[in-house]
Nucleic acid binder design. Structure first.
Lengths: 115, 115
DNA sequence: GCGATATTTAGCCAATAGGTTATTTAGCCA
DNA sequence: TGGCTAAATAACCTATTGGCTAAATATCGC
């Protein structure tokens, strides 16, 4: 596991299953059993994903009877979002001219190839 | 490599070396040799990182004599940023009360004259 | 305490990631 | 052409990831 928090957050977000778990959790707290069902995945696999998310600070766990519900923790996401926003702002400034140029190209019906 | 673009982007951002490369590229195009030096890393390692970034659509390569400069491509970053922003907005709604509370804590004892 | 249910941990495995060095390919110039 | 420089590829190594099943642990209801 990469030690710095930003790396941990991005790594956690880099898996579609985990993003889907976050999407589910955005609807409200839920527990392993309820996550395992729609994802067609074993309990232990879900537990591992939750552990990754928890380690990244994206969720926290609690205890309710035999279940251990997970809920979102927005702080880590905020850090990642701010990193991205900062870069985007910087790049958008740098690429303002390019942006306008590309827009122009699109209106002319260009042939786009790279590499 | 994970197939979907969002996963590829987040995975690319999950490595501190690659984020540092992006930071360097934000200052302007540069080539492998110039990247390998400050990162104390072999050329092939840089090439691999650039390949990951390119695969995620975060950069593009070109050719200038023997060098193959890399430059930023903001589009993929935009997609990731938008994903995060969407989630943050949603969560922030959910966590509005907590946010306000935390803000209050920071201004502990101050006048609070927010709308 | 016993049994049922929910979750975690322990092993195990295959694939991927991130690094290395050595070799090959691509482009420039005399 | 041949030599020089920059970069990519090949081959290899180790650690991590993401999944599984089987076993262990935690909590509840009785």
């Amino acid at each position: 596991m990469n030690s710095d928090p930003l790396s941990a957050t991005f790594a956690a977000l880099a898996d579609p299953t985990r993003r889907a778990i976050l999407a589910r959790l955005a609807l409200g707290e839920t527990h392993v059993g309820e996550l395992a069902r729609p994802f067609a995945m074993s309990g232990p696999a879900i537990t591992k994903h939750l552990k990754v998310l928890e380690n990244a600070g994206l969720i926290s766990r609690s205890r309710a009877a035999q279940q251990r519900p997970a809920k979102l923790e927005p702080a880590a996401l905020k850090a990642a979002s701010e990193w991205l926003t900062a870069y985007r702002r910087f790049w958008d400034e740098k690429f303002d001219d390019l942006d306008a140029y590309l827009e122009e190209l699109q209106h002319k019906g260009e042939n786009n190839d790279h590499d």
